[in-house]
Write a protein that binds this DNA or RNA. Sequence first.
RNA 1: GCCGGAGUGGUGAAACUGGUAGACGCAGGGGACUCAAAAUCCCCCGGACCUCUGGUCCGUGUCGGUUCAAAUCCGACCUCCGGCACCA
Length: 830
Amino acid sequence: MSKYPHGEIEKKWQAIWAETGLFRLDTRSARPKYYCLMMFPYPSGELHVGHGRNYIIGDALARFKKMEGYELLAPMGWDAFGLPAENAAIQHDIHPAKWTRDNIAKMKRQFIDWGVVYDWTREVTSCQPEYYKWTQWLFLRLYHAGLAYRKAASVNWCPSCKTVLANEQVIDGQCERCCTPIEERYLEQWFLKITEFADKLLEELDGLKEWPERVITMQRNWIDRSFGVQMEFRIKGTDRSLQCFTTRPDTIYGATFMVVSPEHPEVARLAARSPRQKEIRRAVDQFIADKRSGKARTEPSKEGLFLDAYAENPMTGEDIPIYVAPYVLMEYGTGAIMAVPAHDQRDFEFAQRYHLQIREVIRPADGSSTLPQAAYVGEGLIVNSGPFNGLDSRDAIQSVASEFEARGIGRRTVNYRLRDWLVSRQRYWGAPIPMVHCPSCGVVPVDEKDLPVLLPEVVDFRPRGDGKSPLATNEKFRSVACPKCGGPAERDTDTMDTFVDSSWYFLRYLSPHADEKPFDGELVNRWLPVDQYVGGVEHAILHLLYARFIVKFLHAQGLVGFSEPFARLFTQGMVCKDGVKMSKSKGNVVSPDTLISRLGADTMRLYILFSGPPERDIEWNDESVEGCHRFLNRVWRLFCEHNDVIDQSVTGAIKYDTLSESERVLFRKTHWTIDRMLADIADNFHFNTAISAAMELSNTMTSFAETAAIAPGSNAGKTLRFAFDALIRLLAPMTPHFSEELWRRMGHTGSIFDERMPQPDACYVTRETFDLVIQINSKIRARVCVPAGTAAEDLRQIALSNQRVKELLADKHPQQVIVIPDKLVNIVVR
RNA sequence: GCCGGAGUGGUGAAACUGGUAGACGCAGGGGACUCAAAAUCCCCCGGACCUCUGGUCCGUGUCGGUUCAAAUCCGACCUCCGGCACCA
């Protein structure tokens, strides 16, 4: 039997879509807007079917929305700067620019082969000067707003990539790219003050109702805000004091010692006064070395050392010993803590190890304290705390905080886990940071009108390992006149983290070629927030947090009218094979090219969408792909055998009353399918169940068409034509070439994507009859076919008078009869 | 350790606010067509049992509970996956 000529059809329609600009946006359209955005990819080379899934889900969604009547913005671009391009370029000895350009061409070709369509007139490429000019502009704006600053900081250094990494790029103490253990270095770096927006970033998460709950949770945990008190402890015998932060000021009377981080500046000063100076220094050096080697991360211990010094507990007036221990982190709070062993498990373990005093100051009302086996960290009644005795600990938090403030030795404050964003990279392939270092004026920003600061093409871009960017070797690039005094100065030779590039690209799509502004404020305000953002969960924290930050900044500057960029977020699952994520390095990739030449792009699309709900991971199965191909062939054959009937020119209105029973069944099945497929896709992009509904309809149509000869224009013919018409339109987002071709062969002249989705008629979405389930004591005992909508009382009577029910009930009397209309009757007997 | 998510046939998965568990596929078994194969079409396909054109019982990770009725709700636990992890 004839197979449909997928190769020929697909090439034909791909050419037509490109020529007619299927998804070309008309910004002046009166139709409601829909901004459907895919996370723009890193141009890493050839894509496998695992990558393909992302784009196919997005494309199916875009086509669906178009057919729902929206004016669609579906752009695509390239996150083209970054480490992998450079690493690969070094390996293959070609320029990163060429490598990137070649990959982009390959990937574009693949999108076309898959039938994935974008408005390519809006393509943006982050490594092009016309784009990164505005990334630099963004940096300058941040700088002028005081949100970009330079700080000598202990940074994560990857000895293999020879660059600094952001905290976010360090996974388990290793580089996220090459898994080399991270070293710590102390360098001058550029930071963006994301912490300035920490509260907004946290609070506005509540408004993101259409984001996956887990992404919201991950962001919330990442920011991790805690309210507390920063307080001052005088160091005995000196005129200095230690600042520490606590969320539990209510436990102050239980603070029997203090602990400072090995990196705390006070450690050296205190050590200098100690007779054990050498011993202390050696131990502290060891702590720091362990931390840098990542050892401390894997085996947390409550090791520490007494510093031969005491502080005064400002509430009890007691002298309490000061220890140094690596469990206190320099990066959080003040790098020093008041230790309350009775009510903090870490302090408890430390106190046990060094036999320090453990004083209970909170007693739970129900006697549930875990002391003396473990710290009691819950709420309770304040004891052993002078004037605060008898208070509830929750109230005591406020009372003690107020007391500190009243005495001027503490203040209420907020701490975040979120750190400022380190954005400078000692790498070549990125947007140069538009700053100049002048011996007389200091750090001077480049003038906006002098942007872009062009990345020089010819540079020995291999990394050096001396903490400097390859750009530092380019004398021509480096030396520049100071924008302020005109004297000889040097450019900053670092480039920006690529997450800066990707934090604003979705604004650029509205005016991709504007060379006088980064984005068109008016268009952006009309088209954003993005209606649907689609991408992988791996960006749940980094990219999405940075993009939110930058939009909040632009909002604060009055440059955009919204403060959240993405109204709705969808994170799709991965494609696995043999139980693990499909990837080149695992050697389990399936090439889309071979699959397409054998079975066609529509089959690949259909399979990918059918094999599971899009938010979940799917396991690739070559055999199941065949099943999808068979389905398309069946539909094709159905058309070929009945094309005279299905031809659009023979249509006529269907009069339901004149239909035969089998025609009514098919007619209703069609309405049911329309209803279900539209709901499944609209609801959560559940293409998998939508496709199974399409298969059901196709099965019904096939058996309908086999029972009798069908004449064009007859009731049977009109009903079949109606069903086919609906099926083809409903399938179009999933199998676009296939649907376009059949649509054309039905006699239509335009594109199916200029059509609307069929709409269900509520009176026909249910079946005319249904099988009433009759249960006795919740066990199914009989089924009876009855008309839909039969009244509850009638259903009750049907059930009770059923022959089999009577037999089974015998002389027993129903105690209760539960009737669920259009479903079942449950007769309860005891 | 804390915070999320998930456990359903041989397999991918369905099951809308509790109401027929396993739709729709894949694999498998049997048959038709064919010299044969491919393709296509038809039938069977969770388990156990019985007096086998039918019927009974069991079955959605485990154990309890609520309910006429639980994959679905509640409680405890087990396993897997993801995120965070000495955050004061």
